[in-house]
Amino acid sequence: MFLEWVASLIGEEPIELYILLVFMIAAAIIAVEIEDLLSSIVAVGAVGLGLSITFLTLKAPDLAIVQLVVEILCLIILIRATIKRDITQVKGRQRFITILTSLTFIVLFLVLAWSSLKNLPEFGYPIMKVAKNYLGEGLARTGATNLVTSVILDFRAYDTLGEVTVLFAAIIGALAVLRKIGRK
């Protein structure tokens, strides 16, 4: 009875997506509210795991691998390896201003998202004008059986070049700021 009601509520879309969504929202709330820093990071990792499984159910294994590796492992290991103590919390009047600012931005974001998401095509049925071309001719024109790779390294290689440049600049900047002894 209850399940039928839920099924009528969500229509044709797969139910596991909604379960994952609820799980991710719960984990995100836990991550914000919990006191201990390490537990909070583990909760953020749970959000990442949920997102990774979501990508798998939506048939995007490449994204799932990157999500798993970057969000969960990197986040936890980076923070475990570098931070030992908790971060200080804001209190008093400052806290009131922070909450007010966050609520304002949440409302603003929801309004803007609602007005723009109305115009998007329906979930799971994109207008595949460009992608149809790639799916049809990808193997013949690049020889790569993984179509994601053939798009990011052949059809859209300029995007990857930009990404690599951004990564390079970020790492050089981090190393320049974080070095132990400065040079004159």
């Binding site: 294994p61 490449d62 799932a64 691998i65 990157v66 590796v69 970057v70 492992l73 990197c74 290991i77 475990r80 390896a81 020889g143 790569a144 059986t145 993984n146 994601v148 790779t149 053939s150 990011i152 390294l153």
Partner: peptide
Amino acid sequence: IVLHGHLSPGGGFAGGVIIALSFIHLML
């Protein structure tokens, strides 16, 4: 993962992060 990026899911980004994590694992 890096070498089979054009055949199966994965690629340079994911494989590179896994390689870095193996060294970080050693360091931890």
